[in-house]
Amino acid sequence: MEKLDAQLLNIIQSEFPVSARPYQSLAKKLEISEDEALDRVRRLAESGIIRRIGPSFDSHKLGHVSILVAAKAPAERLQTVADIVSKFPQVTHNYGRDHEFNLWFTLICRDKDEIVRVLNRITEQAGGIETHTLPSERMFKVKVRFEF
């Protein structure tokens, strides 16, 4: 990766400027032109490294509830169960893992009732899976950042 791209990514991962001309402030930091800053970010987005530029909201502050679910599905039905789980818009992450609890997913819902409703529908549709809901009791860190 080019050094300038790496520097750009390191900056905008943590903070994208909130101002009328954000690429101008980025350009100033890197001593390049505004157009070059924009072009580089556009290329990083087109190549897929940047998924999205935008806010990460604190779901609790928006009055939402999030939860992690550990599920045990028969190995031969994992894909089927995973597909059922993934199609709910409240499910943000859904991973297969190498453990007896082989499916782990997160839900973000408007309230606890919605969590219960969604989980009931999942278990109805998936049939014969064991699920455990694991609310966070304490958050120590949420920070996805990579150094380039």
Partner: peptide, 28 residues
């Protein structure tokens, strides 16, 4: 819009406003 975003960043409603990367493509 800028004012609202600024307020949300200050009160923590927005935890971070930045680029979200794909880990795989980023080498992790």
């Amino acid at each position: 819009l800028l004012e609202q975003i600024g307020q949300w960043k200050a009160d923590g409603t927005i935890r971070r406003l930045g680029a979200i990367l794909r880990h795989h493509d980023a080498g992790y």
